[in-house]
């Protein structure tokens, strides 16, 4: 019995809905990881000791343990202390914080690489250190690391499949469910793979556009 894609159209709506969830979760988590990454980088570099130390523990937790475990902790663990999050929210938070920590590492390095004269020039005009960071240093640092952040976002898209284990009907889980009904794993996993590929292309396109727009302004 070979491949037979004639069954696909019947279940296409399920797969497309899965795609929509995957895209939604990825975009939300990507935004969280981007802005979270900036905030974490500032805390790690300039935060008061009382904030910096817990952050180091937090960063270690997110970099040193499996994302799957983190999702379990956020979804199943937090319920025990009365925080009952919807699965997709738990998924977005888990993915977002996980990649925020990675983005933060990139942004920290980039902040330290911004020429010292930039901070000096801003301070000389009368900006406070916070204003100088916000207006002068961080925008330059973030521009410098957009390509590697983009790579992290591609990884985030792929890892979004993990939120299927806490029951979010994203692309991978949707494919599994259809396979449960049709017993056609090859067709539907291939279809899911093709969907990921297309979403990936879309993300790369957006990324290139952002980078091009910003590279003009340098």
């Amino acid at each position: 019995m070979g491949l037979d894609f004639s069954i696909v159209p019947k279940y296409m709506d399920v797969i497309l809905l899965g795609c929509a969830w995957t895209i939604g979760i990825t975009v939300a988590a990507a935004l969280l990881s981007f802005f979270g990454g900036i905030v974490f980088a500032v805390i790690a570099l300039y935060g008061p000791w009382l904030l910096r130390q817990p952050f180091r523990l937090f960063a270690w937790l997110f970099m040193g343990t499996p994302l799957l475990l983190q999702l379990f902790l956020i979804y199943f663990g937090l319920v025990q202390i009365g925080i009952d999050l919807p699965a997709f929210v738990a998924g977005i938070i888990g993915l977002g914080l996980h990649f925020a920590v990675y983005n933060s590492e990139l942004i920290q390095t980039a902040i330290l690489a911004v020429d010292k004269g930039q901070m000096e020039a801003a301070r000389t005009l009368g900006l406070s250190r916070g204003e100088a960071l916000r207006k002068v240093v961080i925008p330059q640092a973030v521009r410098a690391v957009l390509p590697p952040i983009g790579n992290n976002m591609i990884a985030l898209l792929k890892d979004s499949a993990l939120v299927s284990v806490i029951g979010v009907s994203e692309l991978t889980l949707s494919a599994q469910r259809v396979i449960g009904k049709t017993y056609r794993p090859f067709e539907f996993y291939l279809l899911a793979a093709a969907c990921y590929y297309v979403i990936n292309l879309g993300m790369e396109w957006v990324q290139r556009r952002i980078e091009r727009r910003i590279s003009i302004s340098r």
């Binding site: 004269g117 930039q118 000096e120 020039a121 330059q140 340098r218």
Partner: peptide, 10 residues
């Protein structure tokens, strides 16, 4: 400054 220190992103 000697090295201008203009903000390159602006």
């Amino acid at each position: 400054f000697q090295h201008f220190n203009l903000f390159p992103h602006l």
